[in-house]
Amino acid sequence: MQAVPKCPKITVIRPQGCLSAANALELERNLIAALAQHDVSLLLVDLAAVEFLDKSGLMALVSAHKLAQNLGRSFKLCSVSSSIRMILELTQLDEVFEISEDNLDLAVA
């Protein structure tokens, strides 16, 4: 009998435009709903289409990251533009979040 490795289930969330006070609560709800699925082992937030991020958007990401940790799940950001990366660096959240260059990096992770 062969041991079959368990394949991780990856859920990808792709927010678009501005992540600000106007839509941060909706983003947080979507992230929490994705993490609430029992078979999800990795939540990947693809920021390729995000043009702007304010403190409310950051707090939604931090909240979901904390929940993922509490549930024993992985949480990654990918396709982070240079302007969003600068915000993460200024807030030192680049040291908190695991950031992949793009979602293809998951194949080797």
Rank of each mutant, 00 (worst) to 15 (best):
M86E: 15
L90F: 10
L61I: 04
S41R: 14
I84V: 11
S100Y: 11
I32T: 12
L104M: 09
Q69Y: 08
H65T: 00
Q2L: 12
Q69W: 05
A21I: 15
L67I: 14
P5N: 11
A48S: 11
K66M: 09
H65E: 02
L88Q: 06
R29N: 13
V40Y: 07
L44F: 04
L90P: 05
V62S: 00
S20M: 11
I32P: 00
S82C: 06
K66C: 10
I13R: 01
A107R: 07
V62K: 00
A21T: 11
P8R: 13
L106T: 09
R85F: 13
S79C: 14
S79G: 05
E89Y: 03
S63E: 07
A36L: 07
C7K: 12
Q16L: 09
R14C: 15
D94Y: 04
L88M: 08
N30M: 12
E95C: 10
R29L: 06
L104E: 12
N30A: 12
V96H: 02
A21W: 04
F52Y: 14
S81E: 05
L67Q: 12
A107Y: 11
S74M: 11
N70C: 10
V45L: 00
D102R: 05
D105R: 02
T91V: 02
L43V: 03
E28G: 03
E101G: 13
L77E: 07
T91Y: 02
E89L: 06
N70M: 12
L27K: 02
S83K: 12
L47A: 05
L47C: 06
N70I: 09
I84L: 09
A107S: 13
K66E: 11
I13T: 06
G57C: 06
S63W: 01
V50C: 03
L77M: 12
S20R: 03
L35F: 06
A3M: 12
A21H: 07
P8N: 10
L104R: 13
L27S: 09
K66Q: 14
G72H: 06
K6G: 07
S41I: 05
M1D: 10
L27F: 06
I84D: 01
S74I: 07
S82R: 10
D94C: 06
K55H: 12
A21N: 06
P5W: 03
R85W: 07
K66S: 14
V40W: 08
